[in-house]
Simulated assay, not measured.
Amino acid sequence: MTPQDTTLLAAAVVESQDGYAQAIRTGKHHFPSDEPAALGGTDQGPAPYQLLMGSLGACTAITLKMYAARKGWDLSPLTVKLKLFREKDHTERVERVLSCGPSITEEQRARLLDIAAKTPVTLTLSRALRIETTFAPASP
């Protein structure tokens, strides 16, 4: 694969803090992550799975708003509710529930469901993302 075959979609730097707390930087944005107290953290920010659901929900809402704007549809108020479940067989699934304003018809809702299934983060998660992990060289 050559460099021109690859597009950088996102980057983040995560610096570990006390306990399970983490400081996340993505571009000019800084935010915390942590585990809840029940899991040994100090609940200083959302847990990793909460961040994942937030990412999926944000991508869904942004994509639907872009589509609706092109069509001249008023989605207000648009809400995306998400729940991540692990089944007994260890597979995972997400329940995603959309709600929007009363001006959207059943036909439009059906189209929005089609669009939601094709959002960038939805497609990434659906493809079972490959993760390559290496260690950086040791610092002197």
Results as ranks from 00 to 15, higher is better:
residue 78 L to T: 09
residue 91 T to Q: 12
residue 85 F to G: 09
residue 57 G to A: 09
residue 86 R to K: 13
residue 101 G to K: 02
residue 60 T to D: 14
residue 63 T to A: 00
residue 56 L to W: 01
residue 87 E to C: 08
residue 62 I to W: 03
residue 85 F to A: 13
residue 65 K to W: 11
residue 75 L to F: 07
residue 58 A to K: 07
residue 96 R to G: 00
residue 87 E to H: 15
residue 88 K to V: 03
residue 84 L to V: 00
residue 55 S to N: 05
residue 72 G to T: 10
residue 87 E to D: 13
residue 58 A to H: 04
residue 59 C to N: 03
residue 62 I to F: 07
residue 61 A to S: 07
residue 52 L to Y: 07
residue 58 A to D: 06
residue 101 G to A: 07
residue 68 A to G: 03
residue 64 L to Q: 06
residue 53 M to S: 14
residue 76 S to V: 14
residue 79 T to Y: 08
residue 67 Y to L: 08
residue 71 K to D: 12
residue 71 K to S: 08
residue 93 R to W: 11
residue 77 P to D: 11
residue 81 K to T: 13
residue 102 P to F: 08
residue 56 L to P: 01
residue 88 K to H: 10
residue 101 G to N: 06
residue 102 P to Q: 13
residue 93 R to Y: 15
residue 75 L to Y: 04
residue 87 E to Q: 15
residue 61 A to E: 10
residue 59 C to K: 00
residue 89 D to H: 05
residue 100 C to F: 12
residue 74 D to I: 10
residue 97 V to K: 11
residue 99 S to W: 00
residue 66 M to G: 06
residue 102 P to T: 14
residue 56 L to C: 03
residue 56 L to R: 02
residue 61 A to H: 00
residue 61 A to F: 04
residue 57 G to T: 03
residue 80 V to E: 08
residue 80 V to Y: 04
residue 75 L to V: 09
residue 80 V to D: 03
residue 102 P to E: 12
residue 60 T to E: 04
residue 62 I to T: 05
residue 67 Y to D: 10
residue 72 G to S: 01
residue 54 G to A: 15
residue 69 A to F: 12
residue 56 L to D: 01
residue 91 T to S: 15
residue 71 K to G: 05
residue 100 C to V: 06
residue 58 A to Y: 02
residue 83 K to R: 15
residue 82 L to D: 10
residue 91 T to M: 08
residue 82 L to A: 07
residue 66 M to S: 03
residue 100 C to W: 02
residue 85 F to W: 11
residue 101 G to T: 11
residue 90 H to Q: 14
residue 69 A to H: 14
residue 84 L to S: 09
residue 54 G to E: 12
residue 100 C to Q: 02
residue 82 L to F: 00
residue 85 F to M: 11
residue 76 S to T: 15
